[in-house]
Structures are given as C-alpha cells and as structure tokens.
Design a binder for these strands. Structure first.
Lengths: 86, 86, 86, 86
DNA sequence: GTTGATCTTATTTCTC
DNA sequence: GAGAAATAAGATCAAC
C-alpha cells in the first residue's frame, strides 16, 4: 500500500481488500481439499495392493513426458520464428 | 510401466491401475488450476495497488490464527472429555 | 542452537561456527563466479549471433532428456525390486 | 535442435554451437557441485548441533552488510571523483 | 519503467 | 523424525 497505511484507506478500498483476502482464502481451502483427495487416491491404491512409490514414479514420468513434448514444441516454434517462417 | 512390466497383472488390475493414474492426473490438473487462480487474484490485487507482500503476510497470519484457535478448541474439548463433561 | 543462546557457546564451538560460516561464504562466492561465467558464455553466444532464448531452450530440453532417462531407469529398478528380481 | 532445423548453418557455426552448449553444461554441472558442497556443510553443521535456520540468517545478514559497505564505498568514491579528489 | 523470465531461497511433502 | 524431493515464493535481471 504505497503512500497510505491501512487507516487511511477508503471504505471502498477496505471492502475490496476484504473481498480479495476472502477469495484467496477460499481458493486455498479448495486447493487443500484437492490435495487431500489426491492423498486419498494414493491411500486407496496402497490398500488395493499397488506399490505407491512406483505409482508416484509413473505419474512423474508421464508428467515429464508431457513437459518435454511441450518444451520441444516451443523450441521448434522459436526456430520457426527465428527463420521467419511464422 | 510398459506392457512387459505388467504382463503378469490381470486385466482387471490393469484397468484399476489406469483409472487410478487417470484420477490422480485429473486432480493434479485441478490443483494446478486453483493455484493459477490464486496467482491471478494476487496479480489483480497488485494491479489495483495493493502491496502483495503485505497481503501474503495477512493471509499467513490469519491462517496461523485459525490454526491456533483450532488447537485451543481441541485442547478444550480434550479437557472436557477427560472431565466427563462432553 | 537448541538450548543455548550464543553467549553460552564454548570457544571451541564459536571457532567451529566461524569456520562453518567461512566455508559457506567461500563456496557461495565460488557459485557466484560460476554463475557469472555462464552468463558470459550466453553473452558471447548472443554477440556471435545466436538466439539466446533458443539456446536456453536447447539446454533445458537436454537437461529434461537426461532427467527423464534417469527417472525411467529408477522406475524400472523399482519394478524389478517389486518383482523380486533385484 | 535437430539436424533439420540447423541444416542452413555452416559447419563452423554448428561447431561453435556445440562448443557453447558443451561449455554451459559443464559450468552448470560445476555450479550444481558447489551447491551440493554447500548443502553438505549445512548438513554437517546441523549434525554438530547448530540451528541451520539461524545459520542461514547469519549468512544472509553478513551478505547484506557487505553489500551495504560496498554501496557506501561507491557513494564515497563517486563524491570524491565529483569533487576532483580522486 | 514495468512486465516477463530466470535463478535462488523457503516451505511443504514424501520416504525411509 | 531426519533427510530428500517437490512446490511455492521472493529476488534479480533483462528486454521492450
């Protein structure tokens, strides 16, 4: 807050601030819930007899595959732009 | 996990595995989206003129407060139960 | 420092602390120098006419390749262990 | 950067590119090693009983001090030069 | 001069 | 619970 400490804010700004804090807190709550759901899936998988460590590695590897494909596309695009082809 | 590695699994187990991987990946995608929404809120707040560093501190402090209150409530409840009051 | 504030340290411990700080600072200095050398290489490459962005992407992609190969090996090993083969 | 993308480059340029990539990768490897050495020092310090969080703060503060001293010296020098004293 | 990218630090999460 | 790894946050720096 640049040039004003909190007591100098207008009511409208304070209201905006309240809403912002509220939105962030709600989204963080959502994020936490999703993280818990992921943990549950792993727990179920383990209970079913899957090797959680291996499962996590598979997920990670597939993620890397996706990342690498995307990266390769970006490199290609960069070169095409550099060559005046795009 | 290529076919060679899982050829000893039953088809039912393979299907279960596919579903598990799929569920986790979907949830991780969701988590990522929520994280992006949070970043957007911070970006908007910044554009509006809020000091995001201070904002983050506020969020953090409120989170600690909640944690402390919950902790206090748990202690209280434990005591009440121990006293046969709950 | 667990159970003691700084004034309660023995001289031997203080000396150990001095040496630790010194070692870390020396290594951080080294790290900084290497980082500067990397920047110089990029600057030279740019002066030579290379597209730095593309160059960085290439480096990143090659790094991902290496990471993915290592990860794939780890997955394989995990499965072999799980199968009692290693 | 596959062959198709760089087929318009001269062999000399390709060679230069290879050397550049190689130099950067070697330096990044060096940087990584130094970073690992730093982690080792912190690990040793922790094993010895030091509070690594406090230790990190000390390092940070000393770094700031050095930066401030250098800044002060630069200002001094600037003034001396402006006054024709240096 | 402000966003965008990169690099580093800090916190959290997972594994043993 | 300690160590390692992933994620998030902050700082820094270049580019437009």
């Amino acid at each position: 807050m640049d040039d004003a400490s909190i007591q100098h804010l207008t009511e409208a700004t304070r209201e905006k601030l309240r809403q912002t804090v509220s939105k962030i807190e709600r989204l963080e709550e959502e994020k936490k819930e999703v993280a818990e759901q992921i943990k549950e899936i792993y727990a179920e998988a383990k209970a079913f007899g899957f090797d959680t460590k291996a499962l996590r590695q598979v997920i990670k590897l597939r993620k890397q595959d996706r990342a690498e494909r995307e990266e390769a596309e970006m490199v290609l695009e960069t070169y095409l732009i550099a060559l005046g082809e795009a």
